[in-house]
Amino acid sequence: MLRRSFLNEIRQELNLHPYVYPEDFEISSSTQTVTSKLIIRYLYDTSRCFTATIDNERKTYDEVDYTPSLKVTLRYSPGDIAGDEREVVYGKNSLLRAIGEWAARIKEDLCLEPNLRATEELGKKMQSFEDQLKDIPDNPASEEQLEKLRDLINDVEKQLTEQIESLEDSVEVKEKRIKELEIQFELLRENAKSGNFRDILRQLGSRFYRVASDPSLPKLIQNGKKIAGLLDSTDTDGMMD
């Protein structure tokens, strides 16, 4: 069995609140004649696992300037780059550091998950929207269509801006996002002076869905009924008349 003081040091490395806590992990160990094994599992996703096989005999290794140390063979998921990686370290401090880095990667993944889910949802919505666009002729837009598109672009920009202003707490972030929005929609207005109707509509849909998928703006689609109606299938026929 591994020493209790060492297990306590491991728990300290796993304490990355408010995202990761020591009690989120199951720690087990076993000892044989020449090796000891340490296994740490993340309880809420057991594919996230850290295994260390420790040589119980101290030896001299060139990697540590000829200082007698313990060789530790590691396997862990997630890795720094790959989902599953292996590594050899020497000594207790290096082992603890590897455990801390592994826990930090789990924390990083947990922080990214809302954005990853939003990106996946955005992809699905854009694919659905793209499928609807296939029914629209790939022709130059008429002046009437361009006028309706310009009105719609202004309407979309106004609603997105209002949502950012009402739901974004940080003044600095709010100003930055509105400025970025202004640049994007100014480009859309330029493109809507002439061009392919389907391509302009595709750009508009992309801008809307990208902002609408933001987890910090949950009320956006509810308050954008006209735009949502257009992009989700109902108004495109009217705009083609």
Score class of each variant (00 low, 15 high):
residue 49 C to D: 03
residue 90 Y to W: 10
residue 128 S to K: 13
residue 15 N to L: 13
residue 44 Y to F: 14
residue 206 S to A: 12
residue 218 P to Q: 04
residue 26 E to F: 00
residue 193 K to Y: 07
residue 185 F to I: 02
residue 102 W to H: 07
residue 108 E to Y: 14
residue 55 D to A: 05
residue 17 H to L: 10
residue 7 L to I: 09
residue 130 E to V: 02
residue 77 S to C: 09
residue 135 D to V: 10
residue 7 L to V: 04
residue 179 K to H: 10
residue 8 N to E: 07
residue 40 I to L: 07
residue 142 S to C: 10
residue 80 D to E: 14
residue 95 L to M: 03
residue 158 K to N: 06
residue 112 L to D: 13
residue 66 Y to C: 09
residue 216 S to I: 01
residue 67 T to V: 12
residue 91 G to R: 11
residue 172 E to I: 04
residue 152 L to Q: 10
residue 226 K to E: 15
residue 51 T to Y: 11
residue 203 Q to N: 14
residue 26 E to K: 07
residue 71 K to L: 05
residue 192 A to K: 00
residue 154 N to D: 05
residue 97 R to Q: 09
residue 74 L to N: 02
residue 149 L to I: 15
residue 95 L to T: 06
residue 200 I to S: 08
residue 134 K to W: 04
residue 114 P to F: 00
residue 234 T to V: 06
residue 49 C to A: 08
residue 86 R to E: 11
residue 172 E to K: 09
residue 198 R to H: 10
residue 220 L to P: 03
residue 196 N to M: 05
residue 141 A to M: 08
residue 80 D to T: 14
residue 209 Y to P: 04
residue 139 N to V: 15
residue 6 F to E: 01
residue 116 L to G: 01
residue 153 I to C: 09
residue 48 R to W: 14
residue 166 S to L: 15
residue 54 I to G: 01
residue 239 M to Q: 03
